[in-house]
Design a protein around this nucleic acid. Structure first.
Length: 374
RNA sequence: GGAGGGGUGGCAGAGCGGUCAAAUGCAACGGACUGUAAAUCCGUCGACUUUAGUCUACGAUGGUUCGAAUCCAUCCCCCUCCA
């Protein structure tokens, strides 16, 4: 098989595993920071690596626009181009089918994007998306799909899902097998169990190295998302990694691991870092808030990131107020480290068979909220 | 000494008889952010009560007017240019 996945331990629905790629091993459950344009915003790749991240995301649509897949290939592939020697997963452009719906036209053949940069037209087919991801030298290629918006009626979700399944087959056919590289299918079906099953069956018939759950965390709320995750992961092959796309908040991730998900990616730690939010074991804080103005404590006492080791809340608050780049850098760093530490704790508890206690403790702390007294 | 311009909410700055508790930006305060069109976006921002409303407000005082941030008079202060 092109990508080897070993499951080391299981606990109820949760799994501890290792995914082997040409550029290294990914310990699962894993969180993948998002580096859409060939950079995790405001972070040095070396800094991202120091957080414990073992794999990054890149994006087909954005890299196709700038600098173009050919150039990246000429520069030796995305790993070399961006100085990230570890594994890379690339999204197919399927999310942009939803997020850029005003700038694109969907047909059975593919999707025409009007570049958000200069208006230039790009026609992205499943074959083209796979080809671009190949040129980028992505370790994990994603099928081109349509991230079904929410809410969708049953019929809308069905049509959208079925097209994504036809595109999944075309994507798989266009994919060139190589050792240490793989392709993931993406389940759709919105919040409808029948459609999720139909989608899972279609993907399994095609056969993939891993299976993603797409079309969640698009506005349905955590309760509905968890309802879907109560059944969706188990519809997918047990011996392959399961990847919940675009999720999520820390408690989303813990809940999803409990329900059998192995991989996550989310913009949240970096975007929040740019918008003054810092994640802590006791829930998120907004460092811009006046209550941090004279707080001599670190953002999080237990955290070992540079922000928490070397700077006070008062200082980060000051930097943020002054709109200083350093605030964005340090907060992004902290948040990614927070997510990676969370995943490390999840894996450790699965390893030591204390996952249930970890989950209980996690939610108890999150509910306590940030301690306000100084 | 001569000529001119101006004083508006924390700051900058519109408004030049009613529709002005006063545009807009910044600051302040709070919220949102989930496969990144995002160092972004949204809300609040005189006081008290808030559905509606009441009061105090555009340098100061007095006046004209049904009605004044807007017009007039006097006073105080600031700025530019020329001597």
């Amino acid at each position: 098989m092109a990508l080897k996945y070993e499951i080391i331990k299981k606990h109820n629905k949760s799994r501890l595993g290792k995914l082997h790629t040409k550029h290294g091993i990914i310990n699962t459950p894993a969180f993948m920071p998002v580096g859409t344009c060939g950079t995790v915003k405001a972070m040095l790749p070396e800094s991202v690596a120091s957080t414990g991240a073992e794999i990054l995301l890149g994006n087909t649509y954005h890299l196709m626009l700038r600098p173009g897949a050919e150039l990246v290939a000429k520069m030796g592939g995305l790993h070399k181009f961006m100085n990230w020697p570890k594994p890379i997963l690339t999204d197919s452009g399927g999310f942009q089918v939803m997020s850029l719906k005003g700038l694109r036209k969907l047909t059975e053949e593919g999707v025409t994007f009007k570049s958000h940069v200069d208006g230039k037209q790009f026609f992205l087919t499943p074959e083209e998306s796979i080809g671009i991801q190949h040129k980028l030298d992505s370790n994990i290629t994603m099928c081109l799909d349509e991230c079904t918006p929410f809410p969708a009626t049953f019929d809308e979700a069905k049509k959208s899902m079925q097209r994504s399944m036809r595109w999944a087959e075309r994507s798989k056919n266009a994919f060139q097998n190589r050792d240490g590289y793989g392709i993931f299918g993406i389940q759709q079906g919105s919040i409808f169990k029948d459609l999720r099953q139909e989608s899972a069956d279609a993907l399994k018939k095609i056969g993939f190295d891993g299976y993603a759950i797409g079309g969640l965390a698009v506005g349905e709320g955590q309760e509905k998302m968890f309802e879907v995750l109560d059944y969706a992961p188990e519809m997918l092959p047990e011996d392959k990694p399961r990847y919940l796309m675009g999720v999520g908040k820390p408690d989303d991730i813990v809940g999803a691991v409990s329900r059998g998900v192995d991989m996550f990616d989310c913009v949240m730690p970096t975007r929040s870092g740019r918008t003054a939010q810092a994640f802590t074991d006791y829930g998120p804080i907004n460092i811009r808030n006046a209550r941090h103005r004279e707080d001599p404590r670190p953002v999080e006492a237990e955290c070992d990131c540079p922000l928490c080791r070397n700077y006070t809340r008062a200082y980060i608050h000051h930097l943020q107020k002054c709109n200083e780049i350093l605030a964005v850098m340090l907060l992004s760093w902290h948040n990614i480290r927070y997510y990676e530490r969370l995943m490390q704790k999840i894996r450790k508890s699965l390893e030591e068979e204390t996952f249930d206690e970890f989950v209980k403790d996690f939610y108890a702390k999150q509910q306590m909220g940030d301690i306000e007294e100084i």
